[in-house]
Simulated scan of single mutants.
Amino acid sequence: MTVRRLTLDDLDDCSRLAKDRGWLPERHKWRLLFEIGEVYGMDAPDGDGLAATNILTRYGDDHAVISMVLTASRFGRQGLARRLMEHVLEQAGGRTVSLYATEHGRPLYERLGFRVVGRAAKHTGVFKGEPSGRTRPATEADLGRILELDAELFGTDRSAALRRMFGFGEQVRIAEGGFGQCWRNDDNTVIGPVVARDEETARALIGDLALHAGGEVRMDLDLAKAGLVGWAGEHGIGSPWEVSMMVRGGELPGDRSCQFLPYMQALG
């Protein structure tokens, strides 16, 4: 099977492949990844959709994120995931590459030179709390300020993703020394990214975004931030599902103490 660059014309088949593996279709998320990333795949030899996918999202000249590593169930254990990973790593050039890995996928990534650098967990629930009074809705006029702060604290250029927040997300909020977004996925509203100079500001942003969203929200929390994990639990956000944070060829960028929630696991 030949690896090819996918286009939005392949979106239906990407969603079908996700459902085949027990994932949600997440068409809204896939569209964003097509816009800012490089989506690769292999056509199924039986002519029925895609056999496998993988996405590379570049952050400047020094970092990239891999995501949506999917193989159709009927083509499992045939080495397709490894072939696509090797292709995408070649495309990444000399960049440090990171990803979030399930326990099922982690052995493959370790064989390809990735190492575990932390643990994160998806937490969900209905947020219980009051508005902080410290944040406000952002507008596109605030974009320059957001990009400047993110470049400093995230440590590499993800401006292409951040510029799309105002069209992709439900709301962007800012505070003195921080910003955050919430966006609607198939079954809940995801809070992320959240970047702030201190945890108190991050909590204010997260809480206000969750209250704006209403209903069930999702937060992908770094388990090393025990205080934030505990705070989320006290406010109704639990049911963790853990994954490994992995990196190859260097270190994760920026000041991790100021990176409170990722944009999504697919974007780091």
Rank of each mutant, 00 (worst) to 15 (best):
M1P: 13
V3Y: 07
T7K: 06
L8D: 10
D9C: 03
D13I: 03
G22W: 07
E26T: 02
W30I: 10
F34L: 14
F34G: 13
F34M: 14
E35L: 13
Y40P: 09
M42K: 11
M42I: 15
M42V: 14
A44D: 04
A44V: 01
A44S: 07
A44Q: 00
P45D: 04
D46P: 06
G47W: 13
G47C: 12
L50T: 08
A52E: 06
G60R: 05
I66L: 15
S67Q: 02
T71E: 01
A72K: 04
F75Y: 15
F75T: 09
G76L: 10
L80E: 10
L84W: 06
E86K: 04
H87G: 00
V88D: 11
L89R: 03
L89S: 01
Q91C: 15
Q91H: 12
G93E: 11
G94A: 09
R95K: 12
T96F: 07
T96I: 12
V97T: 15
L99E: 08
A101C: 14
T102P: 07
H104R: 13
P107C: 06
P107F: 12
G113A: 00
G113F: 08
F114A: 02
A121I: 01
A121Y: 00
K122D: 00
P131S: 00
S132W: 10
R136N: 08
P137D: 08
A138W: 14
L143T: 00
G144W: 05
I146H: 07
L147K: 00
E148Q: 14
E148T: 14
A151C: 09
E152V: 15
T156A: 04
D157Q: 02
L162T: 13
R164E: 13
E170W: 04
V172C: 06
A175I: 10
A175N: 09
A175T: 09
E176D: 15
E176I: 11
Q181M: 15
T189H: 12
V190F: 08
V194E: 05
D198R: 13
E200G: 15
A202V: 03
L205G: 07
G207C: 14
D208G: 01
L211W: 02
A213F: 06
G215C: 10
V217M: 05
V217P: 00
L223A: 04
K225G: 02
L228E: 08
L228R: 08
A232Y: 10
H235S: 05
I237C: 01
I237H: 05
P240R: 03
M246E: 03
R248P: 07
G249T: 03
G249D: 02
E251L: 13
L252C: 10
G254T: 02
D255S: 03
R256C: 03
S257K: 06
Q259A: 01
G268V: 08
